[in-house]
Design a binder for these strands. Sequence first.
RNA 1: GCCGGAGUGGCGGAAUUGGUAGACGCAAGGGACUUAAAAUCCCUCGUGGGCAACUGCGUACCGGUUCGAGUCCGGUCUCCGGCACCA
Length: 828
Amino acid sequence: MEERYDPKKIEPKWQKYWAEKGLYKTKTAESLKKFYCLEMFPYPSGKIHMGHVRNYAIGDVIARYKRMQGYNVLHPMGWDSFGLPAENAAIKHGVHPSKWTYENIEYMKGQLNKLGLSYDWDREVATCSPEYYRWNQWFFIRMLEKGLAYRKSSYVNWCPSCATVLANEQVIDTKCWRCDSVVVQKELDQWFLKITHYAEELLSACDDLKGWPEKVVLMQKNWIGKSTGVEIDFRIDGTDEKVRVYTTRPDTLFGATFVCMSPPHPLAQKLVADREALEEITAQYGKVEEKLGLFSGHYCINPVNNERIPLYIANFVLMEYGTGAIMSVPAHDQRDFEFALKYNLPVRRVIAQEAVAEAQGAQLSEAYEDDGVMVNSGDFTGLKSPEGRVKVVAFIEEKGLGKKVVNFRLRDWGISRQRYWGTPIPVIYCESCGIVAVPDKDLPVILPEDVKFTGRGGSPLKESEAFLQAACPKCGGRARRETDTMDTFVDSSWYFIAYCLKQGKGEWGFEISERNNKITNPLNYWMPVDQYIGGVEHAVLHLLYSRFFTRVVRDLGIISCSEPFTNLLTQGMVIKDGAKMSKSKGNVVDPDYLIDRYGSDTSRLFSLFAAPPERDLEWSDKGVEGAYRFLSRIWNVVYRNLNSLQGTSYPTAGKADIKGISEAGRSLLRKTHKTVRKVTNDIEREYHFNTAIAALMELVNEMTGLEPADDLDNSVLRFAIETTLCLISPFTPHIAEELWTAMGNEPGISGQRWPVWDEELSKEDEVELVIQMNGKLKGKLMIPAGAADEDAKKLALNDPKIAEAIGGREIKKVIVVKGRLVNIVLGG
RNA sequence: GCCGGAGUGGCGGAAUUGGUAGACGCAAGGGACUUAAAAUCCCUCGUGGGCAACUGCGUACCGGUUCGAGUCCGGUCUCCGGCACCA
């Protein structure tokens, strides 16, 4: 054994040993209780960053801990390897996206291995490989068959810089999530996945996500955004047309003083004579800065009071939500209020604030949006809002003017991207047959290699004649291939399912014909993921899509669970100098440098120690040195005692041996059992590794101070050290393995059983009793553990200092907290 | 604007059920070893007063409940995150 701790000498050695022994390969024994531990797979951008180190360190501790507890653990890793940066690199440097991507994967895989992460690499998938994306295409065709994938023309978010469509979720504050360009609205033919088919289920199942952070569940709920309201038809005076509006406030119907319609609304085209003005307002559609309206030249009839009110085309009314038209009640909706003010439209109050004497006719300075009592509302006057809503809806339905409906904020998922480096959408356009799906036997539709990346115009796939030309699978006639590729979020929506199927180099995949097959179906053994770990930035996007996809896969009969992730841990960001690490801020810490300088054990230990996993972690170079010092102290205590520890062993069966043990030895033995309890509980309690590590530091501090007096002390010390090594091995596996073998044990500490504590041996003989007077600390006293409350009280009252402090005052009450505290309540 | 979350030493953070506030680590100061430095080890370390024993104050702020509040309740301020014409 070397005198000094030198991670460079031991870490590569053990990484090689683990790989050769195949220690982290998943067993197929399905009689064992399983644990599926998953970290979000990275985009292979070139190098891992500290966020990855933290994410994967957390996952690795959990995987190793669960293995030591006897679980059959699936702990896979792969690559989210389609996406824009590869294509941008191709444009900029002339490297093919494939080459760039696979080289990055190669390098990053090496980095992950240098961290000592216990992955089963036989399960590795790369989403850009045809063996993976063929199943994207397969799922797409299944969804097409079921009507869950469809094509429609619509206004989409368009990033002019990336020259592609963005999903709503990828638009952050009106800007592109990737490049920060301002997103514009553009009308395009797009493929959509019908996530709204599952809107109700995705929402109601949120309440079952008990193992998710409440914050994330709430964000999902808000994103889905269910609202109940009513659709009402407004006849357009002098025509046969009617406009259908959606409102959640039927109780304000009598206050509707105009109707607004979205510019792309089909009726707008029909009704507005001034094409130029209509085009102008259409160009302003979706602009948040200003509300703009165009009088259509027509009037609507309010069905409850037959009032004739103007119909406007308004740029703030969304076509994609509700019916694309609204009734405007300026008195009770702030947006309508602003619009009315601008275009000088009447404001009529129909809801009065309850329990407040209304100043009749008083000018409103803003809309009153709360519930209240209906006024100026015909037969409904006097009803409270909630009751009024029910009654108005009943009236509307009875007269056949409309119906009660549920709306969701959630839209269908537009997946078309005008890009090369993604999954080709497996569809062919035939001149005579129309849209035809590529038959399963022709999958995968492979990306052509021979394309040029100019960065100009649309997708490079449009330039590849060999790709574009295709025979129609139905009639054999001339046809053209779809050139759009899929949003990369499709790839990551089911990769956790792929891991369950893939084993080594062989074939893997899905077949509906094999559904409900054998109990040994690996999907139903491994799914759902027991613990998922990743950044909170995916709280809506990726997690919602994955929940959707899992349900699609379920409804195909391939899998039986509905929710993919039982427990979710959203880890905080790694920050430095108060800001997220980024190249532009120049505050990045390079994991390669860190591993080279301090070793991966130290890197892992610090990321786990400096903060609990769900919180942001403030990076500290000095803190890293502290972690390194701690590992050195463990090394030193083994090195110093190596000779005297040889041949000793702690008689685990014979508890009675504590008789005759030295005071220091007994104390260390007690501390060891307490530490096992603390570390185990801290891991179980929301993975609070920081306090678990603090407890291990305390234990090491105590054993460093022990001078063994006899063989019994030596055997306790050996027990304490071996226990420490087992407890710390999930955090810092290399040093644990090295010291474990240095003490004469067979290699394979990660195969040891997780230590268990002995409650008896962890008990103190004496405990400290706190004495308070009127709730203020007045003294402390050592009393025998387990002393009765009466005795504790007596001891406290008889303490000379306390007796003196009480003086002659009256004791009103004495409160005793067993084994901890006595509070003497004094009068006067 | 709406919906969440958080405010504890010089710093990162502990305090698990209402019961000793500040575990553990970092930084700082002092000491030992050394020709010297690094490394290592030991001591001090919330703050005010006092030579000291001791004592006052202290978990963003104001108030409440309680024998007892960082923890529970009401209000205020600040910071962070999400959503934002969703009718």
